[in-house]
């Protein structure tokens, strides 16, 4: 039994190690993004509310020109600390053409908290046509689509790291000897170093409502946090519940361990066996 335990353990470690390597499409043919600290990572991960609010501002003022976020409803901005009136004020800025008047003509109406962030383009073709043939991806699950989780912490790339890297990874000119296709931009972190999106952020491009200096690093960090919330709004609730569940299960398992021990106590060593009957 002791021998098998060690081997079993070894097998588990080997398995976990093997499971974790594997190509990450986001960083193939490009540099590996640096790691940053986020309040959301780790067992006690929490959302950084002020950063999320700033990130929302970056999204609505910069990114939303090209990137949709179809699955995020205004009412969910409650997670960012906004109250009902503030959310109504945000929603009412947008117009939706989805109702008909009595003549059957499409009419527009102002947004309500139940509505979702509207897409900047009517359909995929319109989006591609306005962006040189490339489709700006939807933000709703993008952070999760760009993450690479590994058993080894140093190999893990969170989607946030990738976004921050991408935003700060532009070069004014491609390096000597690199053939950059017309219409693309050189970026250290995009596949094959050439991305169709022009650098979207410049220092002080946005004036933060809370007065934080809007450097490119700050804006990319905030928008990455915001996108992480958009991709996984239940993260904090999940980790908080996880802590309670696992602590409870540890207690229950300890109780079950001693229960099991007590149940077996009188026969574990064969005290009930009558050797003369064997």
């Amino acid at each position: 039994m002791k021998n098998i335990n060690i081997k079993g353990l070894l097998a588990t470690i080997v398995t976990a190690a093997l499971l974790s390597s594997g190509a990450n499409a986001a960083t193939e043919g490009a540099m590996h993004p640096e790691k940053h600290d986020y309040t959301s990572t780790g067992i006690f991960g929490k959302f950084d509310i002020p950063s999320l609010q700033r990130g929302l501002q970056v999204y609505t003022e910069v990114c939303a020109a090209c990137h949709s976020m179809d699955l995020v409803a205004f009412r969910t901005l409650e997670d960012l600390g906004y109250n009902e009136d503030e959310i109504k004020a945000i929603a009412i800025e947008y117009e939706y053409e989805d109702t008909f008047d009595d003549d059957g003509e499409l009419i527009s109406r102002p947004g309500t908290p139940a509505d979702y962030f509207p897409a900047p383009f009517a359909n995929e073709k319109a989006a591609r046509s306005a962006n040189g043939g490339s489709l700006p991806p939807d933000f709703s699950t993008l952070i999760k689509a760009r993450e690479h989780l590994s058993f080894f912490p140093w190999a893990t790339v969170y989607g946030e790291d990738y976004v921050v890297a991408l935003m700060t990874g532009y070069h004014d000119e491609a390096p000597e000897g690199f053939e950059l296709t017309e219409g693309l931009y050189y970026n250290d972190y995009f596949t094959d170093y050439a991305i169709a999106m022009a650098p979207p952020l410049f220092d002080d491009f946005v004036e933060y409502a809370d007065g934080t200096p809007a450097t490119v690093e700050q804006m990319s960090y905030d928008v990455a946090n915001f996108m992480a919330w958009a991709s996984d709004p239940t993260m904090q609730e999940r980790k908080e519940m996880g802590l309670r569940v696992i602590l409870f299960m540890i207690v229950l398992s300890i109780l079950l361990y001693f229960t099991n021990k007590r149940v077996w106590r009188k026969i574990k060593k064969g005290q009930d066996i009558d050797p003369s009957q064997l």
Partner: peptide
């Protein structure tokens, strides 16, 4: 009893 204990550990 033994299965219940194993189940507890597994659920963790």
């Amino acid at each position: 009893a033994k299965d219940a204990f194993g189940l507890g550990v597994f659920i963790i």
